[in-house]
Amino acid sequence: MMNATELESKARWVWRETLKLHALCQETRIASSLSCAEILVALYYGGVLRFDPKEPLWEGRDRFVISKGHGSISFYPILADLGFFDPAELQRPGLPGALLKAIPDPHIPGYETVNGSLGHGIGVAAGMALGLKAKKSGSAVFVLAGDGELYEGAMWEGVMFAGHQRLSNLCVIVDNNRQCMLDYCRNVLDLSPLGAKFEAFGWEALEVDGHDLGALLPALESAKRLGRKKPLVIIANTIKGRGVPNLEGQPLCHIFNVKADDVAKLVREESR
């Protein structure tokens, strides 16, 4: 497990690597991949998840379901770094025969489910959590969901189901960047108060700064605390396109690209 300084440094590395991937494959969704970088670092380097890169489907692993597929390109460098696949794959996203696509799929070791279509993660993860309970497994199920995909009704069917079944081994992390594709969520369909909505369905809700590793870690660790009775949602407030001036604060940043030259400049400046 890493200390706080090492975690911060790893998060910056993930930010740079994600931008470099985007420079190589402009079809990747960069803004929503940057909002969840610290969440992923906390889960994989902060000692939260149990995993085995050499045996990605190891029975004793904690399950990590990525629901917001497009916005998880920042997971690629992490998986490569941990040994889930050859880091050389990071140099050829989207090329014929390459492992990594603009939208991930479960052929990539470390991805559990199909995720390009939004709104599936909570329901499928609830089934996994139920199955693990039936097997009397100590493994937990974590889900990374976007706030925008909570517009899909099937997500709330899953929320209702998990609450009723008291799936205390389930934790949903909402990458709450408060933007969907065309606008801020508050202008499209306001999702607030998000935590109260989950609580009304029988969940425990926590709200944290999703870029603050010091706040994220205890919240994520609490998901695995023994004796919990309810599923947990962690609403991680984030910034879409974080750290990239042309993306932050742009209503349309989901579909904005950062050109290779700009990526090089950003990475150079950040590395100083």
Partner: peptide, 21 residues
């Protein structure tokens, strides 16, 4: 398990259970 009048949840839950064997 009666998942309720919720076919999407029915298939999603079934998928999750099947992934667990």
């Amino acid at each position: 398990i009666n998942v309720g009048i919720a076919e999407q949840s029915c298939i999603n839950t079934a998928t999750g259970l099947a992934l667990e064997g």
